[in-house]
Nucleic acid binder design. Structure first.
Length: 882
RNA sequence: GGGCACAUGGCUCAGUUGGUUAGAGCGCUGCCCUCACAUGGCAGAGGUCGAAGGUUCGAAUCCUUCUGUGCCCACCA
């Protein structure tokens, strides 16, 4: 047999194995009518991204599913790609330019975009290479990019179609504006954070009166754009203000007083200053009351009021200045601390400025309808289920989507304006290609809208645009709808919900059937891992220190379905140790396997009489583990699956079977079973730990002519091998072995020393089991001589152990410490008595006996009997001691 | 203001439809470098499952309330 290197070196094997897979094109999928399709589209990482633990978790899960389905005989396509990440990428490239001493405005649009493309060609595939390190079996030949030609085509097609359907419109509304990125953001891109601010109370004098109205505001600087004061019509305090006019002293502007029930009587003074260009509520009020909106800020949030002292000030600077001016005029009343939620740019974390500006929007309500129905009807299922509600709730309250961005990097809005047409309704031309001339007036003075689209406007098409849409490709028809989407909770609204809407609108079918939402990766104090906090663990460093398989296994094993995961570097030892254990166990098997013997008979039947108890037991246990593993994966309980195969391999195969196999290592049945269980276990483990399983598997004889374990079929569950009776017999032997070891340990018998034991059994079946398998006990409990019988007398100078109705005696040789042995027995009697009395109470309860299911009652009776027998055994021995 | 999640041995967490003596990993104690593995083996200590009620023959598990922690959503200026 070929041998494995003595030490497990993940780096050497992982790079080599991955290269082989890629060269042989094992990740490639093609539409194949003979097979069922299975497709996952990757959540495209940003080209600016570098692999973090969130990616590692997300992509490991996807790779596990893909490898599992591929082995299960489906045509499995994992569609990879990257996202151009408009704002994020533009920011990165701008920073680079700054280092070079230049600016994007100095370069101009075209030159700047050249720089971005250059950057993306140099660095945009970093994360792809990192995913390869992780072992991802994506079909790299199909890698897409949200800015590549095909996807741009899809974006334009969608824009035009939605516009023609009346679902895209342009309008002047209050949007979230990032004064640093100088662009509009969608509502989702404004992250609300609690900020400790102040609430300022300010007096507005009433015209022709010595009275004033006190208004409370968090943003005094916006006063410069005030157009009215608003109070609730039901507010008795302000009845007198009907028809009154208040004066804004700094600019000497007169403000109307309006009445609207939107104003909360209980907040502040109940009087609200109305600044339509800088607050969404005020904007609404202005529309309803036909008030003018005065924009007082430039795009960088500096004050734009030429002639006034405040002109050119930053908004926060202006705030102080306005307060100072008010104080001078004795109009400032007081201020108090006020904590409130304020929007921040999700890219640069600058405080968002509500800004009135012309933007493009998607009307969402009509798109939401079918997307709601699809989920309600169960065509799409969320795992864990609770996200369904979050989704439905958001979808039911959906608001229009602002899709225009005032940046350069992205899909240019396919809208053109005629410079000659005087009628504004005719001057807009929405078209996939630039029109030669204006269809209305024939002018060639045509300019394209300078804005680009929200990055998510390309992402929401991902499940079908990557498959070739708007072309009806064979890939699209075969792989769409895709099977499973694996993603994080942060992205449900940004991406998942919108993909469902796009799928329903443009394909009339759901984009995927299952959505698996995994948790957030946190550090071991529970804080979300983020680069800015510096609390990240670099997956590449973990791969370097422990190997990719160790990383994958560890993170999967400790992540319960949908729960957040708390990581520390130390936790990755779990996977490393397991990999090492598997390596060494396999090394042992390979060292002892005789290739000819294994090849002779690759098939075994469950009833093969040459199989030993241990053989039949490990086969029985394997098939149970296989079944549970498969079921867990299908329910997306991936950690359960990982832990099931871990327990089987470590605690059943290694701890017990390998030790027992040493007894008959050269026998054909042992050879066969050693090989068979290891080979199949490797296949089961392969989706989670692809590299190590491949490496070991390559050294084993094959049952199939497959070149790689990743192409080997998923082990077939064979019920015939599952034998509860065998499990029980083995459990008895394990109990006895552990009990004897316990005895040895408490009597401090030297580990190397062989002891003599005698076992007194009641049942003939048990006698047979023990006699037939005496070698197991002898080897694993270091027993020299062992007597078994129904009429065994307790040997002198012996310690006792009781298992149900079986008593065994360990000859101690020297003088036994009677007091110590008494204590030991009494302690156990105590424990068992406690359990027993609980059961007796239960059984004495008529309600229990009548109402509980029969099998539960039966098993309680059985337990009662077992405990009674043990107690009897223990008591007998206790009396014989005195 | 709504909604969701979590509270189980020293630490980090499993525990699926309520039913064996509540499990694991790390840590801890004792013994062992036994010819696959000290990234290991064997044996062991350690928990009245956040609190109080309720449903039930039976609750870590279901219901209610409370306490603490975290997250998401929301235009109270």
């Amino acid at each position: 047999m070929p041998e494995l290197p003595t030490t497990y070196d993940p780096h050497e094997i992982e790079d080599r194995v991955y290269k082989l897979w890629e060269e042989k094109r094992f990740f490639h999928a093609e539409p194949d009518q003979a097979k069922k399709p299975y497709c996952i589209v990757i959540p495209p990482p940003n080209i600016t991204g570098i692999l973090h633990m969130g990616h590692a978790l997300n992509n490991t899960i996807q790779d596990i599913l893909i490898r599992f389905k591929r082995m299960s005989g489906l045509e499995a396509l994992w569609m990879p790609g990257t996202d151009h990440a408009g704002i994020a990428t533009q920011n990165v490239v701008e920073k680079n330019l700054m280092k070079k001493g230049t600016k994007k405005d100095a370069l101009g649009r075209e030159k700047f975009l050249e720089e971005v493309w250059k950057w993306r060609n140099d660095y945009g595939t970093t994360i792809i290479n990192q995913l390869k390190k992780l072992g991802c079996s994506c079909d790299w030949e199909r890698t897409r990019f949200t800015m590549d030609e095909g996807l741009s085509e899809a974006v334009k097609e969608v824009f035009v179609r939605l516009y023609e359907k009346g679902l895209i419109y342009r309008g002047n509304y209050i949007i979230n504006w990032c004064p640093r990125c100088k662009t509009a953001l969608s509502d989702e891109e404004a992250e609300h954070r609690d900020v400790d601010g102040m609430l300022y109370y300010i007096n507005y004098p009433v015209k022709n009166s010595d009275k004033h109205v006190t208004v409370a505001t968090t943003r005094p600087e916006t006063m410069l754009g005030d157009v009215a004061i608003c109070v609730n019509p039901k507010d008795k305090r302000y009845k007198h203000l009907k028809d009154a006019v208040v004066v804004w002293p700094i600019v000497n502007r007169e403000l109307k007083v309006i009445f609207d029930k939107k104003v909360d009587i209980k907040f502040g003074t109940g009087a609200l200053k109305v600044t339509p260009a800088h607050d969404p509520v005020d904007f609404e009020l202005a529309r309803e009351h036909k008030l003018e909106a005065i924009n007082i800020m430039r795009d960088d949030a500096t004050i734009n009021l030429p002639g006034l002292d405040f002109d050119g000030m930053d908004r926060f600077e202006a705030r102080e200045a306005v307060i100072e001016a008010l104080k001078q005029r004795k109009l400032f009343v007081r201020s108090e601390p006020h904590r409130h939620a304020v929007g921040h740019c999700y890219r640069c974390h600058t405080m968002v400025e509500p800004r009135l500006s012309p933007q493009w929007f998607v009307r969402m309500k009509p798109l939401a309808g079918p997307a709601l129905t699809a989920v309600k009807k169960g065509e799409i299922k969320f795992y864990p289920k609770r996200w369904t509600k979050v989704y439905l709730n958001w979808m039911e309250n959906i608001r229009d989507w602002c899709i225009s961005r005032q940046i350069w990097w992205g899909h240019r809005i396919p809208v053109y304006y005629c410079g000659k047409c005087s009628d504004p309704s005719k001057s807009i031309i929405v078209s996939k290609v630039k029109p030669e001339k204006c269809p209305s007036c024939g002018s060639t003075e045509i300019t394209q809208d300078p804005d680009v689209l929200d990055t998510w406007f390309s992402s929401w098409l991902w499940p079908f645009s990557t498959l070739g849409w708007p072309q009806e490709t064979k890939e699209l028809n075969y792989f769409y709808p895709t099977a499973t989407l694996v993603t994080a909770q942060e992205i449900i609204f940004f991406w998942v919900a919108r993909m469902i809407m796009a799928g329903m609108e443009f394909r009339k079918a759901v984009p995927f059937k299952d959505v698996y939402i995994h948790g957030t990766v946190r550090d071991d104090t529970g804080t979300k891992m983020s680069k800015s906090l510096g609390n990240t663990i670099d997956p590449l460093e973990i791969i370097k220190d422990f190997g990719s398989d160790a990383l994958r296994f560890s993170i999967i094993s400790i992540t319960a379905q949908g729960q957040d995961v708390y990581l520390s570097k130390q936790k990755f030892e779990l996977g490393r140790n397991f990999a090492n254990k598997l390596w060494n166990a396999s090394r042992f098997v390979l060292m002892n396997l005789n290739g000819d013997m294994v090849k002779k008979d690759l098939c075994q039947t469950a009833k093969d009489p040459s199989l030993s108890l241990a053989d039949r037991w490990i086969l029985s246990r394997f098939y149970q583990a296989l079944q549970e593993f498969t079921r867990a994966l299908e329910k997306y309980r991936i950690n359960d699956a990982a832990n099931r195969i871990y327990d089987f391999l470590w605690h059943e195969y290694c701890d017990w079977y390998l030790e027992l196999a040493k007894i008959s290592i050269n026998e054909p049945h042992t050879q066969m079973t050693l090989y068979k269980v290891l080979e199949k276990s490797l296949r089961v483990l392969h989706p989670i730990m692809p590299f190590i399983t491949e490496t070991i598997w390559q050294k084993l004889p094959r049952e199939h002519d497959k070149e790689s374990i990743m192409l080997a079929p998923w082990p077939h569950f064979q019920k015939a091998f599952v034998a509860k009776k065998i499990d029980c017999q083995m459990a008895l032997l394990i109990d006895i072995i552990q009990s004897v070891r316990n005895c040895r340990s408490s009597w401090a018998i030297a580990p190397a020393k062989y002891v003599t034991i005698a076992v007194k059994v009641q049942k003939d079946d048990d006698r047979k089991t023990l006699e037939t398998n005496a070698s197991y006990i002898k080897r694993l409990a270091r027993v020299g001589d062992m007597k078994v019988g129904t009429a065994i007398e307790k040997p002198a100078q012996s310690a006792v152990g009781v298992i149900r109705d079986i008593e065994f005696f360990v000859c101690l040789g020297g003088v036994i410490d009677i007091e110590k042995e008494k204590k030991r027995l009494l302690a156990r009697i105590d424990e068992v008595t406690r359990c027993l009395s609980g059961i007796e109470q239960k059984l004495a309860n008529q309600n229990f006996v009548q109402k509980a299911p029969q099998d539960v009652v039966e098993s309680e009776r059985k337990r009662k009997l077992d405990f009674e027998q043990e107690i009897t055994g223990l008591r007998n021995n206790l009396t014989s001691l005195t």
